[in-house]
Amino acid sequence: MTARLLRTDRVVTALLGLVLVGGGLLVLDWRYRLVFTGYSDALSTTAASDVVGRGWFTWAGAAVGLVLGLLALAWMLAHARRLGRSTLRLAASDERGRVAADLRAVAGAAASRLGALAPVTSVTGSTRVYRSRTVIELRGYVDPDADVAAITEAADRCASEILAAFPDDDVTCRVLVDGPRRRRARRDRPVRVH
């Protein structure tokens, strides 16, 4: 998820929260008259009822609803979008041609390399963009019997190799090691004794 999308999530959610807090406080002020005093004892919705009863209101409501609903759908779909760039234009590109690297293939190869070098299982590779820098993220599960030095050396080696592969481009490598995979509890077969 991009930083921009996260910012949208935060701003819209905070606005909704503030509206709810404001509504709640307004009703409390209506009851106790702490700030304003000009409230009527009973709520009258005659004016609102007149507006809702007009023919144009439902059309306007549907139009506003459509816009908000479509924006909300686009907002929801943005959360499902795959992140990271798939190719990187290399510094070797010039007016004679464009040189690009398939980053997903590089991430996959780096993941296989880490899996072969380190006692880490099910290593996956993905690409991310962080402040316009490309990051190749490798993620796997630790083997609890692992020698820690083997993992750190392998991570250092993978990072060095990526650095060597993209000497003129800002590509970095991050390695995330998770706890061992939880194995499913094996259900023992009942033994029938005759």
Partner: peptide
């Protein structure tokens, strides 16, 4: 905040359905 935001988005979609 992400699941909360998704619920807000669902609420807006519900508003659209109600308006129609």
């Amino acid at each position: 905040v992400v699941p909360v935001a998704l619920m807000v988005a669902l609420l807006l979609v519900g508003l659209m359905v109600g308006a129609f």
